[in-house]
Amino acid sequence: MIAHSLYKEASIQNRYITHDMLQKCFAELPASSIEEIGQSVLKVPIHSFILGHGSKHILMWSQMHGNESTTTKAVWDMANFLRSNDPLAKAILENCTLMVVPMLNPDGAKAYTRVNANAVDLNRDAKQLTQPESVALRKLFEDFKPDYCFNLHGQRTLFSAGQVEKPATVSFLSPSSNAARDITPTRVKAMKLIAAMNAMLQKLIPGQVGRYDDGFNDNCVGDSFQMLGVPTVLFEAGHYPNDYEREQTRKYIFLALIEALKTASTDSLGQFSTGDYFNIPANGKLFYDILVKNPQVLNPALSGGSAIGIRFKEILENDIIRFKPEIIDVGNLNGFFGHQTFKCADSMDFEAVKSNRELYELLLQAEE
Rank of each mutant, 00 (worst) to 15 (best):
G222L: 11
S268I: 07
M103S: 07
E165D: 09
L82E: 02
P300S: 06
N67I: 09
A117E: 08
G275R: 04
G38I: 07
R114M: 02
A168E: 01
L201C: 05
S33D: 09
V353C: 02
Y112H: 10
F323H: 12
I194W: 01
T266K: 15
N14I: 12
L59E: 05
Q23N: 08
L137G: 04
N299C: 07
F225S: 02
L286F: 11
Q155T: 13
L93F: 12
T18C: 02
L29M: 11
P30T: 14
A136W: 13
L364P: 02
W76Y: 14
P185F: 04
V135D: 00
P206F: 12
F159L: 14
A199R: 12
A345I: 09
M64C: 10
R311K: 15
S176W: 02
K313H: 12
M191F: 06
A180F: 03
K285C: 01
Q296P: 00
I205Y: 11
M200Q: 13
V41L: 02
C96W: 01
L228Q: 12
N67K: 13
K192N: 10
F350W: 06
N299V: 13
D107E: 10
K203C: 05
M197E: 11
L88W: 07
Q13L: 11
G222H: 08
G66Q: 03
G207D: 05
L302T: 00
S268T: 15
S40Q: 04
N95W: 01
L173M: 14
N80F: 11
G309D: 09
N334F: 11
N294E: 08
I183V: 14
L269E: 07
Q271P: 00
M191A: 11
R15L: 15
V41T: 13
M21Y: 03
S134K: 08
F272M: 09
R211M: 05
P132A: 10
S306A: 15
R138Q: 13
M227A: 10
C220Q: 06
K43Y: 06
I194L: 01
I50S: 07
A126C: 01
F287E: 07
M103H: 02
R124V: 08
I46E: 08
P185T: 09
S224E: 04
S40K: 03
D107K: 09
N217V: 07
L29Y: 06
H153T: 07
D77T: 12
F342I: 04
V188N: 14
T72G: 08
I92G: 02
M103I: 11
L152K: 00
K166A: 07
S273Y: 03
C149H: 04
R250H: 11
H153S: 04
L316S: 07
E142V: 01
M1D: 12
L291D: 13
V120A: 15
S134M: 10
A119G: 01
G222Q: 08
L261R: 04
E35C: 03
M99W: 10
K343A: 08
S32H: 12
Q248I: 15
S84H: 04
K262W: 06
D107W: 11
A117S: 14
K145M: 14
F342R: 05
T97N: 02
H65M: 13
L104F: 09
Y360I: 14
I321L: 11
W61P: 00
S273I: 00
Y16S: 03
S177C: 10
D125I: 01
